[in-house]
């Protein structure tokens, strides 16, 4: 099995699906001749031509609006937004249009499409190249939100997302685009949407994370193990719809939970997980659910290492939760 980084795995997924399904088209800024500023779409235009792999004008609203029209007509567009930080000019198209077509037409029209977009910090990109803005989309009924943390899942989840009949926001942790490598099967396979993965079993504290924060979370779990604390680590993979069963079952076992994300704290996904645990595992909780998150500040530049949760901050939360 080849060892790939996430960029290569995503590129492979796009090739597999474009060969299999001629409804799939790729579009976005710099995705064609250049192959994307992060090279995720490299070589696609050579193989599939410029009618299926389109360098678009510089307009996110235009990219997503046009992709919606294609999806309505029966194609399966996979538009790229160059950085999640630049998705906002398309917000209206995403939130009011793409997400709502099925509902508002009584199921007559749907938008089966996948918006791929790199997100997250840790690359010295400052406020406009680091945002982790998944919460806006999680708060939007009609969308699915997927965030892989490794090359194997990235490929399998992207294939599932393209085949899904609903619109998916597929957020790619650019910080680990190249840094994390793994074995990725050739050809076709899928990782189901809506299924979290228990990455490591443990009985003391459940750790919940996704995307680039899986790296920090696993490091924290390893440090906790040195102190005799066995953490159960869950990679959510799909945030919406959430695999509530896996999360609740784990916390019923451990009675303790720490949720980690790099997005700002207030109204972030950690709050949602915490609320679900209050509703479904209240009597099993031995400690309050703790959140380790980015701060409620804009994403900084020079001080990003303070902003981003790291293994030490997660470890402190594990200790406090365990000792509660």
């Amino acid at each position: 099995m080849p060892t790939l980084n996430m960029i290569q795995a995503l590129n492979d997924a796009l090739k597999v699906e474009m060969r299999r399904d001629d409804r799939v088209v790729v579009m976005g800024e710099d995705v064609g001749v250049l192959g994307g500023v992060f090279r995720v779409t490299v070589d696609l235009q050579q193989e599939f031509g410029s009618e299926r792999v389109m360098d678009t004008p510089l307009s996110e609203g235009g990219i997503i609006g046009t992709a919606i029209g294609m999806a309505l007509y029966g194609l399966r567009p996979v538009p790229e937004i160059q950085f999640a930080d630049f998705i906002y000019p398309a917000f209206d198209q995403i939130v009011n249009e793409m997400a709502k077509y099925r509902y508002r037409s009584g199921g007559q029209y749907t938008c089966p499409m996948v918006i791929r977009t790199p997100y997250g910090g840790g690359i010295r990109g400052g406020h406009y190249h680091s945002q982790s803005n998944e919460a806006y989309f999680i708060h939007t009924p009609g969308l699915k939100v997927v965030i892989p943390s490794n090359p194997y899942d990235a490929k399998g989840l992207l294939l599932s997302s393209i085949r899904d009949d609903d619109p998916v926001i597929f957020m790619e942790p650019k910080r680990i685009y190249r840094a994390v490598k793994g074995e990725v099967p050739e050809g076709d396979y899928t990782v189901p949407l809506g299924a979290a993965k228990i990455v490591q079993e443990g009985r003391h504290v459940t750790l919940i994370a996704y995307g680039a924060m899986m790296q920090e979370t696993l490091q924290a779990a390893a440090k906790a193990a040195e102190e005799g604390l066995q953490c159960e680590v869950i990679d959510l993979r799909t945030l919406l719809p959430l695999d509530t069963d896996t999360v609740v079952q784990s916390v019923k076992k451990t009675g303790r939970c720490v949720v980690v994300h790099e997005a700002a704290r207030t109204g972030g996904f950690g709050a949602e997980v915490s609320a679900i645990l209050m509703e479904k595992a209240f009597l099993d909780l031995e400690a309050p659910v703790r959140r380790v998150t980015g701060f409620d500040t804009p994403f900084p530049y020079s001080l990003e290492h303070y902003y981003l949760p790291d293994a030490n901050r997660i470890l402190s939360a594990i200790r406090e939760t365990a000792a509660f």
Partner: peptide, 11 residues
């Protein structure tokens, strides 16, 4: 830095 290190270079 007048912008207090908040933004990436050139901003």
């Amino acid at each position: 830095d007048l912008t207090k290190g908040r933004q990436m270079p050139n901003h």
